[in-house]
Nucleic acid binder design. Structure first.
Lengths: 199, 199
DNA sequence: GTCTATACTTGGATAGAC
DNA sequence: GTCTATCCAAGTATAGAC
């Protein structure tokens, strides 16, 4: 089939995504990327003009994904449910990107500037929803700032390191819990309860 | 005062902690560490035998801190409150170590093996508390695994990147919310509500 | 466009003077 | 114990053949 030589750029991006997520920006070498992609060393420079640009290219996919949704805030609970679903869905589809994003924010990397807008828009959306909800007496919390951290922490932290598996041994609910719908349901429940959401 | 030449080892550890937290293990160079510590390049090798060992040395402080507490599980809510307080307190006292720990777990780094036991013991403690609480009808949740992730996400994710500050502008509760007690209170409230804790 | 070979830079660790 | 100077390995990026 023709697509075995699946556009070299794509192969590089795929390999880079895996590596950056696992080893970080500095921990990943151009050699590793090219080996993993099965292409020659020179091609990262040729197609992207350097390692850093490969990194940014990965985030460009992401921008439209999150910047587009706008909530009308008429029904903050529904808005929040929707935001949670979108986020969890994306996290499951693109765990590497979430991972990379987390690294950047955590380390306050110099590359953050270029991807700031993505992070910003999500945070602002959440802020508006939480404020609207509190204003209408639907959510109950004291500190906006900390509550935003709690919600994001709940949303983002689902690294399932294989090394933690032993901790979950003999957990009963296993088959069902991995479907998107159930993960969304669990997450929504925890967060809405955390906010003491009243219907 | 004599302590200006505050043991070189300490100076190196302090500098390394800051740098590792901000730039990751690979992103930090021995040269940076020594510059920041104000000592000569050779001293990392001399005192620790390499960059990697500096990293491990930083975590050794941490082991006793968390491995010691044991909960009797008679009152899971009280145990959980206590775990939350300990964790938040430590997170505020040693944000860099939490940051480093998070990086390791997130990237599943090869260094994880050496610090596994720390992470393990905390996760197991939380597991036992959650299971005991559900068994006694005090907590209400479906998936143990996901719920553990939610709780840890809430606990760990409080990176206050300066770059996110604009997002929190004109938040009303500012002065009070930074004291340990109030942060603990906010966090406890969110988590216990998330677990639908019944007293 | 893609490859191999190579130039150039930076990083970790050591040698040896003090 | 601490410093400066240096070695060697590994990284990025480019040159030039195909």
């Amino acid at each position: 089939m023709k697509q075995d030589q699946k556009d070299v750029k794509i192969k590089i991006l795929d390999a880079a995504k895996r590596l950056f997520a696992r080893k970080g920006f500095e921990g990943t070498t151009v050699r590793q990327i090219c080996d993993e992609a099965g292409v020659a060393l020179a091609l990262v420079s040729y197609h992207f003009g350097g390692k850093e640009n490969v990194y940014y290219a990965l985030f460009e996919t992401l921008t439209p994904q999150f910047a587009q949704t706008t909530y009308d805030l008429k029904d903050p609970e529904a808005d929040l449910r929707s935001l949670i679903r979108d986020f969890v869905q994306f996290r499951i589809a693109e765990p590497e990107l979430i991972n990379m994003l987390q690294q950047e924010v955590m380390m306050q990397s110099p590359r953050l500037e270029k991807i700031q807008s993505i992070v910003f828009s999500i945070w602002m959306q959440l802020r508006h929803i939480l404020e609207a909800g509190r204003g209408m007496g639907r959510f109950d919390y004291e500190s906006l700032k900390h509550t935003m951290h709690f919600v994001f922490g709940t949303l983002i932290f689902s690294r399932v390191s294989p090394f933690l598996e032993p901790v979950f041994e003999s957990d009963t609910v296993q088959a069902k819990e991995e479907s998107l719908d159930s993960v969304v349901a669990y997450t929504t429940r925890f967060i809405l309860n955390g906010l003491q959401c009243k219907e």
